[in-house]
C-alpha cells in the first residue's frame, strides 16, 4: 500500500486499526503463554508497531499467523538478550485456576491432569511450542509454519516428533495401573 495520498493514508490507518482490534487479544494471549504480563504486553505492543511499519507485508486475508510470527521473533530476541523466562509448562501452572481442573475432569482424558502436565513439562520448549500452535490456536500446518518461519513440510516433521515425544512422556509419567489404557488409547493416534 502506498502512502502518497491522504486517501491512501486513511486506508492504511483503517486497515491497521482493524487488524489491531481483531487480533490484539490473540497476540497478547500468545505472548502470555510464554512470558509474564508486563513482558507479554511489551511483545504485543512491539508486534503491532512492526505491523504498522511493515503494513504492506501483512497478509490481507489472514494476518494472525504473520502477527504471531512477529511476536515470536520479538519474544526470542528478548530471550537472546538474556531475559529470564518461564517454560510454557511453567506458564500453564502459573495461569491455572479451578476451572482448569474441572475442564480436565470432564474431558474424558485417560491420564490425570498432573500426569499430563508432568509429561508436557518434560518436553523441550520447542516441542511444546509446536504442539500448542495446533492444539491451542487451531493453526493448520501451513499457518503454523508461517508462525515458525519454516516450510510446511518441516512443520509436519517437527509436529510428528513432538507428538511422539509427548506420547512417550505420558507413558513414562502415567501410574503403572493406567499404562495399558494410555498405550491403547494413543496407539493409532499418531498422524
Amino acid at each position: 500500500m502506498s502512502s502518497g495520498s491522504t486517501g491512501d493514508q486513511e486506508d492504511e490507518e483503517t486497515w491497521f486499526t482493524s487488524i489491531y482490534r481483531r487480533h490484539y487479544p490473540s497476540v497478547l494471549g500468545y505472548a502470555l503463554a510464554h512470558d509474564r504480563r508486563d513482558v507479554a504486553e511489551d511483545i504485543a505492543n512491539e508486534t503491532f508497531l512492526t505491523a504498522w511499519r511493515k503494513l504492506g507485508s501483512v497478509p490481507a486475508d489472514d494476518p494472525l499467523p504473520w502477527l504471531l510470527g512477529v511476536a515470536r521473533r520479538h519474544r526470542l530476541k528478548l530471550r537472546a538478550a538474556g531475559r529470564r523466562h518461564d517454560s510454557i509448562a511453567d506458564r500453564v501452572v502459573r495461569l491455572a485456576d479451578e476451572r482448569d481442573a474441572t475442564a480436565w475432569d470432564t474431558g474424558s482424558l485417560v491420564a490425570e491432569r498432573d500426569v499430563g502436565l508432568a509429561a508436557f513439562a518434560a518436553l523441550p520448549d520447542r516441542d511444546a511450542e509446536i504442539l500448542i500452535l495446533t492444539a491451542w490456536y487451531g493453526l493448520g500446518p501451513a499457518r503454523a509454519a508461517v508462525v515458525l518461519g519454516c516450510s510446511t513440510a518441516t512443520f509436519f516433521v517437527r509436529l510428528h516428533r513432538a507428538r511422539r515425544r509427548l506420547a512417550c512422556a505420558l507413558d513414562d509419567h502415567a501410574v503403572p495401573g493406567a499404562l495399558a489404557v494410555v498405550g491403547e488409547s494413543l496407539e493409532g493416534q499418531h498422524r
Binding site: 487479544p25 495461569l95 485456576d97 476451572r99 502436565l117 492444539a135 491451542w136 494413543l186 499418531h190
Partner: peptide, 27 residues
C-alpha cells in the same frame, strides 16, 4: 488424543484474554 491432551492443558485464563474485546483504552 495427543492434541486433546495438550488442548486440555490450556489455561482458561488465556481463553479469557483471547476472547477479550479491544476497548477504547487502546485508542
Amino acid at each position: 488424543m495427543i492434541d486433546k491432551t495438550v488442548r486440555a492443558l490450556k489455561p482458561a485464563a488465556l481463553d479469557d484474554v483471547e476472547r477479550g474485546r479491544v476497548g477504547p483504552e487502546h485508542d
